[in-house]
Design a protein around this nucleic acid. Structure first.
Lengths: 180, 180
DNA sequence: ACCTGAACACCGTTCAAGT
DNA sequence: ACCTGAACACCGTTCAAGT
């Protein structure tokens, strides 16, 4: 089947392009990402990229999902949901600090992509494991993600991170106490 | 004194420029802000702007502070700190929703400017009025701002906003209970 | 003091044309 | 299928020159 072989080759090429984009983004932020520079890193023209990728905007989204895939998912088996949630919040924070352009990209448009979906579902699963109802778990998961991302945007690390995060986790526990 | 009159005229011109920039930003986001377009709105060349403004990047920061000055500061006199904090968080949220490019600009570089400083100090004052120590008040203020901004970035409105925010305010109250 | 015009080194994107 | 080259309509910024 030359069709699938061709598609596979194209996917490979696309990943090379996305990797080159990530390098440029890490070096100089969103404004450093240009089609001609990405092409230059692969020995081709900037215009040639349009065979594999729809637009610069699309390439940026692909790069976001690519680095988001690197964030670790803590094991679901363990009995301690609270440290697991803290770890996930910290992993997101660390990712955003390592790739500051992530925030810029996320501010342009709401996040979307397979790796992000996977992470969202995992976070929700951990919240549900604590015993919360589905609705409460969704609110908790969103709150944790919101705070993790906001904490990178609004200011430096600082001790307030633990204050806000601890408060949210305490909120989860009071919610649990009410139900039982 | 022609010197001060000249400076005053220049400040006026600068405000016109910033206002034109805000219009363009509201219309089409950060990528719609170009020197030539701003100049066009005022009947001058794009290059002419450089007499009044240092760079496009600087103009963006000026625009951020300009809209930030519009957020209302709830009265400090009232006895209820909790609704005051909720109101401030909501005002910030509303501002970021009204000017979506604010998030993009804020993600590029940490906020700075007189209007933002004024807002930060007011938020801190409300937190201190609750009876928290200076250090705890700073953590609470940062947490509230973080959550307000993050909630716009991470997702739509949704009920989780009240969940996270309520948890943080509950955290303030438990902190107060411990001290007394 | 304040602005123009031209210039420089860039952009994203399209598209015919090559192989 | 995959890429080049040229082209188009844009950019930010500088700077001499005008008034």
């Amino acid at each position: 089947m030359t069709a699938t072989r061709g598609a596979a080759r194209d996917a490979l090429r696309q990943e090379q392009i996305v990797q080159a984009a990530v390098v440029l983004l890490d070096e100089g932020g969103v404004e450093n990402l240009s089609m001609r520079k990405v092409g230059g890193r692969l020995g081709i023209t900037g215009a040639a990229l349009y065979w594999h990728i729809k637009s610069r905007h699309d390439l940026l989204l692909l790069a976001v999902d690519h680095v988001w895939a690197q964030v670790a998912h803590p094991c679901l088996a363990g009995p301690h949901w609270r440290p697991a949630l803290l770890a996930m919040a910290d992993n997101v924070r660390a990712l955003c600090v390592r790739h500051p352009w992530l925030l810029t990209a996320m501010a342009i448009q709401p996040l979307d992509g397979p790796a992000i979906d996977r992470h969202d579902r995992h976070l929700l699963a951990v919240c549900e494991k604590s015993g919360l109802t589905r609705e409460d778990a969704e609110q908790a998961a969103q709150s944790i993600l919101t705070f993790a991302i906001g904490s990178v945007l609004a200011a430096g690390p600082g001790p307030y991170v633990s204050f806000g995060l601890r408060s949210i986790l305490d909120g989860v526990e009071t919610r649990l106490a009410v139900r039982t």
